[in-house]
């Protein structure tokens, strides 16, 4: 019955590993999901080769959005920002290991959207960043 609420999602929600603000940081970006008012900020540290050396998120949201943010932070540390630019919706679904309907997909993709808007240096995040 709780396929959507796999243990990993509940665990990451209750006890996130990367929920922190990074000060100083090299990249920081913040966005909201206007449907539910959820809000997410991501801070990144990037070395001179473009590799992400640390990542943290803050804000509030549902278990799906918070767990996907936590898993995404973990997965991008050690990656080059050029690789991160290529990440897609499918990468997030693979991290979460669940299928999602259109409404909850927005929750799951909020963190990737914020990260990509940040690494691209955009003024505003858009859904186009996370469409396949």
């Amino acid at each position: 019955m709780d396929d959507l609420y796999r243990e990993i999602i509940i665990e990451r929600y209750k006890d996130p590993q990367f929920k922190k603000e990074l000060d100083p940081h090299d990249i920081s970006f913040e966005d909201e999901n206007p449907l539910c008012g959820d809000q997410l900020r991501v801070d990144l540290r990037v070395d001179e080769t473009g590799m992400i050396t640390d990542a943290g998120f803050s804000g509030h949201g549902c278990a799906i959005s918070q767990a996907s943010a936590d898993l995404l932070m973990e997965s991008i540390i050690g990656k080059n920002i050029e690789e991160v630019k290529k990440m897609t919706k499918q990468d997030i679904l693979d991290l979460l290991g669940i299928e999602l309907g259109p409404v909850r997909l927005k929750c799951a993709l909020l963190s990737l959207k914020v990260v990509k808007a940040g690494v691209y240096g955009l003024g505003e995040a858009s859904d186009a960043l996370v469409e396949d």
Binding site: D2, L4, Y5, C36, G37, C62
Partner: peptide, 26 residues
């Protein structure tokens, strides 16, 4: 302990339809 979206989603798994969010009253 739980976000309204998660509450509504789990209730949906019980067949229960409720609304989660700010209900157009931010």
């Amino acid at each position: 302990i739980a976000h309204p979206h998660d509450v509504a989603q789990i209730l949906d798994q019980h067949g229960i339809a409720v609304r989660a969010g700010h209900h157009c009253a931010m």
